[in-house]
Simulated assay, not measured.
Amino acid sequence: MHTQSYEVEARPEDRTWRSETLIVLALSLGASGVSALISFVGSVTRPGALKNQAATLVGSQAPGRPWLDLAWQVFAIASALAPVALVAHLLARERVGLPAIGFDLSRKGWDLARGVLVAAFIGGSGLAFYLGVRAAGFNLTVVPESLPDVWWKIPVLIAAAVQNAVLEEVIVVGYLLRRLGQLGWTPTAALAASALLRGSYHLYQGIGGLVGNMVMGIVFVLLYRRWGRVGPLVAAHALIDTVAFVGYAVLAGKVGWLPTG
């Protein structure tokens, strides 16, 4: 009896979406994940406890040269958003655009209100978690900013916070979940991939950065699936980072509970 085997060929669009997704990640947060892993290996193999090492998030690029420093800061923020422009282009080619993932101004008040609520919950619990894991020796001391005291310091910190929020939520939640769904991934597998990716590029901060951001990633995916929009997540993330950056700039060295590295 002859048995004929059949191979299911991948649809052309599947191959396109798969390669497209890998390229987007290689140009953005996937590459950041690899960089964070290398950085973490360097930290754990360096003499001394992790908590005695510092991970600076927004630092000076040209110490003592404020105008050149400002130019580098603006360049870094703008270039980091290039993958978001690529995602916008790719979604436009699908004839859906960024509104398909809920990144538009059609419901800006609704997005902001929910973002404030999410930020209040995630921000407070995240700070407590960070202080705990750092004290336990599983995390580096996170230094949110080390910019000089110049006129553009606060605007740059706010811009950096917004850039982080837009880049991460558009790519790690909206775009990635859309593509994985189109490729036939189960909702659970897609959630795990998104959360693991978010945790991976925070590994340079230590195990606490990895685990804490994976938990945040799970929460954000669940909220995205409930609301169908990344807008509230962008708002929440931007508020969390703005409070962290500006709060550190104001409080560092003035309160005993805030590690300064």
Rank of each mutant, 00 (worst) to 15 (best):
T3R: 08
E7W: 07
V8W: 04
R11E: 13
P12H: 07
R15H: 10
R15I: 09
T16P: 03
W17F: 15
R18G: 12
S19D: 14
T21H: 09
L22N: 10
I23V: 15
I23C: 07
S28Q: 06
L29Y: 03
L29K: 00
L29S: 01
A31C: 07
A31P: 02
S35A: 15
A36W: 02
A36D: 02
A36G: 07
A36P: 05
G48F: 02
K51M: 12
Q53P: 07
A54H: 06
A55W: 05
L57M: 15
A62V: 07
G64A: 02
R65A: 02
P66S: 08
W67A: 03
W67K: 02
L70V: 01
Q73S: 08
L81T: 06
P83V: 10
P83H: 11
L86S: 05
V87M: 13
L91P: 02
L91R: 09
A92I: 12
R93M: 15
E94M: 12
V96E: 12
G97C: 13
G97M: 10
L98H: 11
A100K: 09
A100G: 08
D104G: 15
D104K: 14
D104R: 11
S106I: 12
W110N: 11
W110D: 10
D111K: 06
R114G: 12
G115Q: 08
G115K: 09
G115A: 13
L117Q: 14
V118Y: 03
V118W: 00
F121I: 15
G123R: 00
S125N: 09
S125I: 14
G126S: 13
L127R: 04
A128N: 11
G132N: 12
R134K: 14
A135C: 07
F138P: 00
F138A: 05
L140S: 01
T141Q: 04
V143N: 00
S146I: 00
I154N: 06
P155Q: 10
P155K: 09
L157Q: 05
I158W: 01
A159T: 01
A161R: 01
V162E: 03
A165T: 05
E169C: 06
V172T: 08
R178L: 04
R179V: 14
R179C: 06
L180V: 12
Q182S: 15
G184I: 13
G184R: 11
A192Q: 11
A192I: 13
S194H: 05
S194D: 04
G199A: 13
L203E: 02
Y204C: 03
Q205V: 10
G206C: 08
G206K: 01
I207R: 03
G208H: 09
G209M: 02
N213T: 11
V215M: 13
I218R: 06
I218K: 09
V219A: 14
V219I: 13
F220Q: 03
V221I: 10
L222Y: 13
R225V: 07
W227L: 15
R229T: 11
R229W: 08
G231L: 02
G231S: 10
P232C: 14
P232Y: 12
A235C: 14
A235I: 08
A236T: 00
A238S: 10
I240W: 01
I240Y: 02
D241E: 14
T242C: 10
V243S: 00
A244S: 13
A249M: 03
A249C: 04
V250M: 05
L251P: 00
G253P: 01
V255W: 04
T260V: 07
G261T: 02
